[in-house]
Simulated assay, not measured.
Amino acid sequence: MKKLIAFLVFFCSFLTVHAQDTTYVPAEPPFSVTRMALHYYSIKWTDEQWKALAGQEVELVYLIDKVGEPFLQASRGLPDQSVQDSFSIATGSLPYFTPARQGGVFVESIYSIRFSFPAYQRVASRDSILFFNYFVPISREELAEKYVKDYNAVFLDFNLNFLNHLGTPGSYLKSGVGFDVYIGGNWNPHWGAALAMGVEFNGKQRSFPDDPIPGRLDAASGVWVGGLVNHDLKMTDRGLLSVRGELAYGALNAANRIDPDLEEGWVQYRGLHTGVHFNFAWRFSRFSPNPGIIDEHVTARYSAVNFTGGLRYRYYGNKEGTGAHFFIGVGYRLGRDDFRRR
């Protein structure tokens, strides 16, 4: 009986040791399918090859050997042999996979992925990689051929002005110069808005009545900050004519301090600043397309010369400081226009 029990124990131990392990673990890629797709997007494709691949669904089948090295064995959706060769070469620079395991032993296996190349329109794909509004390069030639200017999306204007006061302020102030800055853009083809700010410098013909030291003819200066509404009247490929209305808070330094650290001698008028003027931006540079197309639209940068002129009126709470002045100026614009498909 003891011998039988010993035999049974030995037999069970033998079966346990020699039982076959049939567990199978598939190969695993070194990173996500999205990054694998980006690996192939980064190939230096020619314009013709990229055009042939745009919107194309691609399926790749790899042989993963026992050490995890991938070999491209089959493909679907590649347009020609040169593209297939480029895929095969790029596959050689992929990091190794974690190889498949059968019963705890590394074995060869098959692995496949499917993805779509980005295109101008949304790409339908069964894979988890979907591209919506994907950024793609565009040339100046394609911009001119396929797109038409829609509106002035963003502008940054710097203007240097000559100005001359009228009425009561004109009896105290000489002609002067001013510097204006406008940062804004349009929300549709005709209407827009901007942050507006400026500084002005004038000589004096005589001192203001509030000056505690009569006879001083030092320079007078002004500053204002506010906003404007922009309405585009005429837009061509080279020029853009706009009328603008300003509303801002301003201050006029009618007399300077005697001592920079003291208030003594300082006369300043403050109040509401309004204005209306015309601005003509003449584009002198070529459009430089930005690197992207979104919902059938594309934007492009440009440089322009500004020609501006108009009338401003100030309500500064004092009759000597309240009044109008006209100005004419020239400046520089850095702009961005929006284009839509023809």
Results as ranks from 00 to 15, higher is better:
37 A>D: 05
20 Q>F: 09
92 G>A: 05
17 V>G: 11
27 A>T: 06
54 A>M: 14
19 A>R: 08
187 W>A: 09
70 P>L: 09
212 P>F: 04
132 F>K: 06
13 S>W: 11
342 R>C: 06
287 F>D: 06
140 R>D: 02
287 F>M: 06
90 A>R: 10
261 D>Y: 10
197 M>W: 12
23 T>C: 04
283 R>I: 02
137 P>W: 02
208 F>N: 06
124 A>F: 06
192 G>D: 07
97 F>L: 12
178 G>Y: 12
216 R>C: 00
342 R>T: 12
204 K>N: 02
98 T>P: 06
321 G>C: 10
99 P>N: 13
107 V>I: 03
185 G>P: 15
76 R>C: 00
91 T>S: 13
251 A>M: 15
172 Y>V: 08
310 G>N: 12
58 V>W: 02
39 H>A: 14
24 Y>S: 13
147 Y>V: 01
224 W>P: 06
173 L>T: 00
340 R>Q: 08
334 L>N: 14
186 N>Q: 15
252 L>E: 04
199 V>T: 08
169 P>V: 05
37 A>N: 14
231 H>K: 15
133 N>P: 04
303 S>V: 09
73 Q>H: 04
49 Q>T: 01
136 V>W: 13
232 D>I: 05
270 R>V: 08
268 Q>H: 00
175 S>R: 13
231 H>P: 01
326 F>D: 15
134 Y>C: 03
78 L>N: 02
338 D>S: 15
267 V>A: 07
179 F>T: 04
88 S>K: 05
193 A>N: 13
78 L>F: 06
161 N>L: 12
216 R>N: 08
129 I>M: 10
267 V>G: 05
311 L>W: 15
290 N>S: 09
84 Q>M: 08
213 I>W: 00
331 G>L: 07
61 V>F: 11
146 K>L: 09
332 Y>E: 10
252 L>W: 10
192 G>M: 10
341 R>Q: 14
153 A>R: 14
234 K>I: 05
175 S>H: 06
315 Y>C: 15
262 L>H: 07
64 I>S: 00
270 R>A: 07
44 K>L: 00
244 R>D: 08
52 A>I: 03
33 V>Y: 09
40 Y>R: 03
90 A>F: 13
321 G>L: 10
304 A>N: 07
90 A>M: 10
66 K>T: 10
60 L>D: 05
270 R>H: 11
56 Q>D: 09
289 P>C: 03
161 N>I: 03
176 G>E: 12
2 K>P: 01
